Computed example of a mutant assay.
Amino acid sequence: MTDVSPHEVDIREDPESDTQGTLSRRTAPRAPAHPQTEEAEPEPAIWVEQGVRPSAPWWVWVITPLLVVLPALGAFLYSAGQPEVFGARTEVLYNPPSTYSRQSVEGMMNTQIARIESKEMLGPIAAAYEFDLTELGEDLEVEQVGDSTVLRLTLANEDEQLAAQVVEHIGGRYSVLVNDRGELAQERDYLRGQIAPLETRYNELQTQYASAVARERLAAQAALSTEMAEVRNQITDLRGRLTDVELNQMTNQASARIVSHATVLDDPLSPKPLRAVAAGLLAGLFLAVAFVLAMKYLGVIGAAVTPAGREATRWPRT
């Protein structure tokens, strides 16, 4: 007899069957499966990321910004308390001899600047206005305008009208001296006066160099050789300019005239509060950085692990 599962057979009498109690096979329905319970999604885990932040006493955070602000404030107050210095400017056109080459003109312009700033030029003016000669030379700025032959004279003084008067006087005196028939002779004498001490110095260097060679002092030889080359170049340049002057002394005459009379500049030359504040800020930043580094070196400023205050969501892996 075949084994039958109780769920798959049912024993009953079949009225139409000749045999009573015949087993009738039928498939019994399976018991319904238990419904699967879906797992609930896990709650996200909230975590706080930690970071490292410097830890320091409260007074460090007070002193550090003060080190930046106070120098800037002090520089501003100091600059604002200084008297205003005005500037007056005039421009003089210098006409070199027509036979001068371009290179000779460039060298002559440097000569003209040196002449204006010389004691021979400024001495009588300083005496006339009762100025100190050294201070007058420091307050006067002479420059060449671009590649032209125009010389720009700027004088600084607390009295703007006096500055304009003096700088006009300097420009006028220079023009008179240049237009003098003996201007080339004066320039010739000036160049000769520049060459003479250089030649004396060159001879001294040659003597010292020979002594260094005899004593086999290599370091001294190198230094003397470099200085000799510099002096020799200066002498060569001055001699070239002197040759040009001597060639044009009798036939060609330079001239000069004021092309822009003295005017007072719109803005004072000093003080400059904004520049002072910028310099103060730079100095303050340097002091603040140095202070922080010193505190860190002394152990006043340390590192502490503290919550950084940033949250993130972390989902578990499936």
Rank of each mutant, 00 (worst) to 15 (best):
E230R: 15
R181M: 13
A210P: 03
L224S: 05
Q165A: 06
H169S: 05
L184I: 12
T236I: 10
L285P: 03
Q206F: 06
L238N: 09
A254C: 07
P271L: 01
A163R: 02
S255N: 07
R232G: 07
P197T: 00
Q253D: 11
G171A: 02
E230P: 12
A278L: 11
H261W: 04
L282V: 09
A163Q: 02
M250F: 12
T243V: 10
A256K: 02
A210G: 01
S255K: 05
T200S: 12
T236H: 15
L269C: 04
Y190N: 14
L184D: 14
R201Y: 04
Q186P: 09
L282G: 10
A276R: 03
L205D: 03
L224T: 08
L224G: 10
E168V: 04
R173I: 02
G284T: 09
N203Y: 07
I235A: 14
Y202H: 05
L184A: 13
V176T: 14
E216N: 08
A210Q: 09
A214F: 10
V178L: 05
V245M: 04
T236Q: 11
Q249V: 12
Y209E: 05
T251N: 13
L198H: 01
L224I: 11
P197C: 01
A220Y: 00
Y190G: 08
A283R: 11
L269T: 08
G193V: 04
P271H: 03
L177I: 09
T207I: 05
V277A: 06
V259Y: 00
V231E: 03
V213M: 14
